[in-house]
Design a protein around this nucleic acid. Sequence first.
DNA 1: TTTCTAATTAGTGCTTTCGCTAATTAGAGT
DNA 2: ACTCTAATTAGCGAAAGCACTAATTAGAAA
Lengths: 88, 88
Amino acid sequence: MGINAVFEALSHPVRRKVLALLKSGPKSAGELADHFELSRPTLSVHFAKLKEADLVAVERQGTSLIYHLNTSVLEQALADVLSLREEK
Amino acid sequence: MGINAVFEALSHPVRRKVLALLKSGPKSAGELADHFELSRPTLSVHFAKLKEADLVAVERQGTSLIYHLNTSVLEQALADVLSLREEK
DNA sequence: TTTCTAATTAGTGCTTTCGCTAATTAGAGT
DNA sequence: ACTCTAATTAGCGAAAGCACTAATTAGAAA
């Protein structure tokens, strides 16, 4: 996993937009979903991939799940693109 | 097209390794292929995706095709990751 | 033109991704 | 316990990704 999952996660436009939305601050799943014309379950799967790549962190707040952007992991991916270092 | 193709291209480890190899200078398709345990046709398709994303440029030299890294496009992708700007 | 080498395109099979609807889990409020 | 809302997991079908072998294109050299 690791960097592979990160690039895989970044490969889909919806997931990149989710990250962009989180840049301005943490948001609930529903709040994020309102920015797309996709079903909640579909978005939920996208969230799961971002979480798997550790690009976001989740926190429960009552009945809502709040997603946070994990900036450090994103910046690491960035550094890897810059230097074109490869995993493994 | 555009940024979408770039991130799509970056999503596969083989293609990222190709870019890393090109960092040290232009190389022919065969030269690149020697670094992988994949068939030439398979690699050829990977090259095509990198070309489609404009991450590499190709130049014919006799019977060989020489691939060059297109640094500016790569750095643009990098900038996009940094700022999390989204296309469209 | 024939031949050889370098590389790509065509065609196939398998696996993964992605979207949907339906069903399930989790917490809050009554 | 029941119910409502928020969100995820399960299951399915369509589409795309990836690797292979076989066939094709392009240039160099005889």
